[in-house]
């Protein structure tokens, strides 16, 4: 039987969830025996090369590119997991949800005292992904199968969840593992 395939992505996140994933330390050797990696910032694969079993999503969606990537993951992953507060509820980027986008951009690029008068321009290069009106949790855009809270979720939580998914076993978590911070 072939090994389960894992893919990961960081959308509007800080890569902290990926770093926490790497905090499983020496267990990563065990993991490599159990799974194979496809598209992920860890191996820098840009495109999916095969159907994936487990997709781990860090970050919510703050721009159109995030949405495209998330949808691309949903199409290619059998199980999709929201990892961390940003994926689950928008997290810190979603603090801008309380302020209209126009105000945010004007404050940052037009009115801020640190912007030189000649630089006052809302970035409009075609290469930049368009910002969304607010930051969206991933499960408001595609169906998400599981959620791992935390900022970041601890390495132990990620490990326990992966093991449960790989071995198709129910996830039983000790109290200290579920944290939102």
């Amino acid at each position: 039987m072939s090994k389960p395939v894992i893919a990961t992505a960081s959308l509007a996140g800080c890569f902290g969830c990926h770093m926490s994933f790497l905090d499983i330390d020496e267990r990563i050797l065990e993991l490599i025996e159990l799974v194979e990696f496809d598209k992920s910032p860890i191996d820098d694969l840009k495109k999916f090369t095969r159907p994936v079993d487990i997709g781990l999503i860090e970050g919510g969606c703050c721009n159109a590119e995030n949405v495209e990537v998330l949808r691309y993951f949903r199409e290619n992953c059998r199980i999709l997991v929201s990892v961390g507060e940003c994926a689950i509820m928008g997290g810190l980027p979603a603090m801008r949800n309380l302020i209209p986008l126009k105000e945010c951009l004007e404050e940052a690029y037009l009115n801020s005292p640190t912007v030189a008068p000649e630089d006052r321009l809302i970035p409009n290069d075609e290469e930049l992904p368009l910002l969304l009106n607010r930051v969206y949790p991933c499960h408001e855009i595609v169906k998400i199968d599981y959620f791992l809270p935390g900022c970041p979720p601890s390495a132990d939580l990620i490990w326990e969840a992966l093991m449960a998914l790989i071995h198709s076993q129910p996830l039983k978590l000790d109290y200290p593992l579920i944290k939102y911070d």
């Binding site: 840009k46 495109k47 159109a64 590119e65 949405v67 495209e68 990537v69 949808r71 691309y72 209209p100 986008l101 126009k102 951009l105 809302i122 970035p123 409009n124 075609e126 992904p129 368009l130 910002l131 969304l132 009106n133 607010r134 969206y136 408001e140 855009i141 595609v142 169906k143």
Partner: peptide
């Protein structure tokens, strides 16, 4: 599963602010 989310709607403010037009750029993102 059907989302309420509509990408075209969600980028409308940004289009207005930057004077850009939105087209679904799926290939670029990938």
């Amino acid at each position: 599963f059907i989302p309420e989310f509509d990408l075209g709607q969600a980028v409308m403010d940004a289009c207005q602010l930057t004077g850009r037009k939105f087209k679904e750029e799926s290939e670029n993102a990938r």
